[in-house]
């Protein structure tokens, strides 16, 4: 016991020292960001923000839907100041629960209308395109689907991967719902239940396609571009196919950010959202290597990416995308 006792004493001391040092040095408010965006990307953006304004930001990471629902449940007690997502349905969910403060006019003016809901409760700050990826050994070009809705057909049985539990795919489903209507979406999901292999997230799906575990998958574009830019280790055998033609599968998803109504630091929170949509913030986004599309008209995307105009995305009002309904439909299809 003596030895254990001594070991415990050392650990206690270490814990106390660690805890104290974490508490020290408190000057000015520290913002709390509920962040569903990629942590690496957000760290880069926040560093730039802190450098410019001196305001520190703590991040609580999670998925779109979980953090959105958590915000709603927290209500007035929420410790969050700012909420940022990967996809817009989660923003809409919080907005409908009255969880956002209206954004400053100047902030909204920085962003083209198509990336802002008519309410002005939040704003887009990045965009990503849906893409069909396939293993070029296993899928020939003439087999490529014309529409994302084709994936429920028998020719894709066991041959397509989706990250059904993730917010990204759920946002894509919400686009299908917006474009095709409820009955067609329910049928399509039932087909996917038969056909699809379920992966934990887009990276896992990309890796599986590259390894030939599954011939094809639906993900967002930047996962492939990021890996190509780094090493190509998990995308070497994978090609991209954009649906275009305003197909639901050409859906351009908008990452949103907004100021939480319960925040005690409204001015600082507004500054963060303003920064993320400003030229400096958008430039930081492009330079981060995240390979998502900026939303500001003043900054051009990474040249490695195809221009947004070429992708011919469907014209969807982002404030209509319905997250909870999608979850319900996916539950009915036993995908969740």
């Amino acid at each position: 016991m003596g030895r254990v006792g001594r070991a415990l004493a050392v650990l206690v001391t270490a814990g106390l020292v660690g805890g104290l040092s974490a508490c020290g040095g408190d000057d000015g408010p520290t913002l709390t960001l509920y962040n569903a965006q990629h942590r690496d990307l957000m760290e880069v953006l926040l560093d730039a923000f802190t450098e410019e304004t001196g305001i520190k930001v703590e991040m609580r990471s999670g998925g779109d839907a979980e953090l959105a629902n958590q915000l709603v449940q927290e209500g007035d007690s929420s410790p969050a100041d700012v909420f940022a997502t990967e996809n817009s349905p989660a923003m809409t969910l919080v907005e409908r629960a009255g969880g956002f403060s209206p954004l400053d006019r100047a902030t909204l003016d920085q962003v083209p209308d198509q990336y802002v809901p008519s309410s002005g409760a939040w704003t887009g700050f990045a965009a990503r395109s849906t893409v069909f990826i396939y293993n070029r050994e296993q899928v020939t070009e003439d087999e490529l689907p014309a529409s994302i809705t084709d994936l429920s057909g028998p020719q894709w049985q066991g041959r397509v991967g989706v990250a059904a539990g993730g917010a990204d795919f759920q946002a894509i489903v919400s686009a299908v719902l917006a474009v095709e209507g409820e009955d067609a979406t329910a049928d399509w999901l039932a087909g996917l239940k038969r056909n699809a292999k379920i992966y934990d997230n887009n990276i896992a799906a990309l890796r599986a396609v590259n390894a030939g575990e599954v011939p094809a998958a639906v993900i967002y574009h930047y996962y492939w571009y990021q890996d190509q830019a780094e090493s190509g280790e998990i995308s070497r055998n994978v090609d991209l196919h954009y649906f275009k033609n305003q197909d639901a599968g050409a859906f351009l998803s908008v990452s949103g950010v907004g100021v939480v109504a319960a925040s005690d630091h409204q001015p600082e929170a507004q500054r963060l959202v303003s920064f993320l949509t400003s030229e400096a913030g958008q430039r930081a986004l492009v330079d981060s290597g995240a390979l998502e599309y900026p939303v500001s008209g003043q900054v051009t995307a990474n040249p490695a990416l195809p221009p947004l105009a070429d992708l011919d995305a469907p014209d969807i009002d982002i404030s209509t995308l319905n997250g909870p309904r999608v979850i319900e439909l996916m539950r009915q299809a036993d995908l969740l």
């Binding site: 998925g63 839907a65 979980e66 959105a68 629902n69 958590q70 709603v72 449940q73 059904a164 539990g165 993730g166 917010a167 759920q170 909870p324 979850i327 996916m330 539950r331 969740l336």
Partner: peptide, 12 residues
């Protein structure tokens, strides 16, 4: 956990 990810604390 999947239910939690898609709707936090839900009936499901």
């Amino acid at each position: 956990y999947d239910q939690y990810r898609s709707s936090f604390n839900s009936a499901a």
